[in-house]
Structure formats: structure tokens, C-alpha cells
Amino acid sequence: MSGGINFARVDKTHHRPHTGEAETILRDFSLEVLPGELVAVVGPSGIGKTTLLHLAAGLDAPDRGTIRVGDGAREPRIGMVFQQPRLLDWLKVAENVAIATDAAGVGRAQGARMLASVELASYAEAYPLALSGGQRQRVALARAFAIEPDVVLLDEPFSALDELTARRLRGLLQDLWLKHAPTGLLVTHNTLEAAFLADRIVVLGCRPARIEKIIEVGEARPRSPEDPALFEIHREIIAGLV
């Protein structure tokens, strides 16, 4: 099993770039994501959702408290899918995946398999600029899962796509999750997306960020985006946000 993510009594303060004014984002914040669980974090803009992802990814350090990612036995393999695909445009699709698998010590064959999983095997030798936005984001998904990740962090991964493409990619992500079962933290503004993908939804509010509500999504996978139960959860999240 992959090991979870644990935020224990974390404080984090940001300084505004122009004024230098300190702003406390997290104070005494705790959250545990269990191994193999996918937790979605929703809340108003600027509440600190992305800060949580950055802390988990090691892009930022807490002022106080501890963050544990993985099982502690070895350095965790972290895959991340960003709002934009963040591909290296001068490398072919296969090389974009290979740069991550090489770093993780995973064979390149795994990258090829993952490209096939996201239905892009025939684009392996193409440059990213020849791909559509949805295809590029599929490459980003393949890159995140090709490293056999312990943890996958998702930062509004489909928000830059049109709804039809986003819907298809959510289905693809669900399939990947069923197959690989890493631990996951998803930040999204889309409450239906949270309900469709997550095992648990954490609703953040106030400032510094506080957990207002935790919603368990009991629906079995694979889920359908048309499932009425998900709309019920969506309404419950909205009620927690307003």
C-alpha cells in the first residue's frame, strides 16, 4: 500500500509580494488522507487549497507542524497534475513521460503502457504543440501515473478544459485510480467533480483555513457522472460553502 498524507498542526504564513504584509493561510491545520484514499478539497478562492498541495509536494515548507507523505520507508514517489499540462514543448510526448519515469527509476516501458492507457500511444513521437488541450492534459495524467506513484496531487486538473473534454478525462482518471490506487489529494472548484472522483470531500472555510465540513462519498466505483447520489453530494457541498 502506498502510504497516506498527514498534515499535523500545520501553520503557514504567506507574505504579500508588494506590501510584504503577512497573511496567515493555515493555523494549527490537521488533515489525514488514508493510504489509497482520494480526498477532494473544496472552498473559496484564496483559502489555502493550493498551499496544501504545495506543502504536500515539497514545493513549500510549513512554518510549524509536520507533513508526512508516504509510508516513511523510502522517499515517496509523487505524481502531480497541474491546471496546465506543464509539458516540455521541445520533447516528444514519450520523452515527456520518460523524463519522469527515469527520475523515479521506473522503466520506460511503463511510460509507453500509460500512454496507451490514456489512448495516446499513436502520439508518442509527436510534439506537445501538435496536440489539443485535452490530449496534452492526458499526457500530464500519463506522466503522473507512469512513475507508479505513492501519492498523486491534482491541482484543478480539468478546469482549463471544455466541459465535454473534462468529463471524458474525469472518467479516464477514475479508471487510472481503480487500476493503480495511489493516495490522492484533489483541489477543485467543481463540486460535481469532487463528488464524482473523491472518497471524502473536505470543505474549507474561514481564514486561516478551517475544515468546515467533511463529506463521505459512499458510492462504489466505477461511478457514473449521471448518478443522482452525486448531485445530492454536490448540493451538500454547496450548502457547506455558503
Binding site: A57, I78, F82, R86, A100, A103
Partner: peptide
Amino acid sequence: EMAHVFRI
């Protein structure tokens, strides 16, 4: 940032 996350 991407390169840092993927520990390249």
C-alpha cells in the same frame, strides 16, 4: 516547479 515535484 514540475521538475521539482517529479524529483528530476
